[in-house]
Simulated scan of single mutants.
Amino acid sequence: MKYSTYQSIFPMNLENLQETRKEGKVRLLQVITNTLLLKLLILVIIVWVAGAGVLTVFAAPSVSNKEVIKLTVQPGDTLWKIAVNHKPERMDTRVYIEGIMRINALEDRGVQAGQVLKLPHF
């Protein structure tokens, strides 16, 4: 069969077809860009909220010199035992221990008998 008598029912306008393809590509780029921007925004919000939470947890109130009690460590005392006995009623013991460590510039949680510690007052 050399020649066909088939004729499409759709008009063959190549210019229209090329324009439609260009519009489709532009639309696809817009969708991808919008999706990436949305993901970036969500990531920024998550990092911001997490950072604010971390800063809140590790933030220690400043302690003035007037609000400090000095204590001599007795044999058998630990920072935990000292903190439990001297911390405010509703304060977490771990937070009070961090306050003791900061005000005394301690690098670890070990204390020795006879050592004088400053206790923060909150």
Score class of each variant (00 low, 15 high):
M101H: 06
V111L: 08
I97Y: 02
V73A: 03
T72G: 04
G53L: 12
T72P: 03
I42T: 13
G51K: 13
A60E: 09
V49Y: 15
K87C: 03
W80I: 07
P88G: 08
V47N: 15
K39W: 12
L37T: 11
L106R: 02
I46C: 14
E89V: 11
I100F: 00
H86A: 05
F58H: 11
R90P: 03
G53C: 12
R102D: 05
K87R: 11
T78K: 08
N104V: 02
V95C: 02
P75M: 05
R109G: 11
R94P: 01
K70Y: 10
V47Q: 14
L41M: 13
V63E: 01
R109H: 07
N85E: 09
T78V: 06
A52R: 15
G51N: 15
V95L: 09
Q74F: 04
G53E: 12
V44C: 15
L36D: 11
E67W: 03
Q74N: 08
G76D: 06
D108F: 04
L71W: 09
I42H: 13
M101F: 06
V47H: 14
L55C: 10
I82V: 11
A60N: 10
T72Y: 05
W80Y: 12
L79R: 00
P75E: 08
L79H: 00
D77S: 04
I97P: 01
N104D: 03
I45G: 11
V95R: 04
M91C: 07
D92W: 10
I69D: 06
S62M: 05
M91R: 04
A60S: 09
V47E: 12
L41A: 15
V84N: 03
A60H: 09
S64K: 09
W48T: 15
T35M: 08
L71E: 06
P61D: 08
L40Q: 15
L71I: 06
I69P: 01
N65W: 03
E98C: 02
A50G: 12
L36P: 05
I45H: 11
A59K: 12
M101Q: 10
G51T: 14
V73T: 03
A105N: 10
I42D: 12
L36Y: 10
L71K: 07
R94N: 10
A52C: 12
G99R: 01
R102E: 07
T56A: 14
L43Y: 14
Y96I: 03
T56V: 09
D77H: 06
V84G: 02
P61A: 06
E107C: 02
V54I: 15
A83N: 03
V68R: 00
W48K: 14
I100C: 00
S62K: 09
T56M: 13
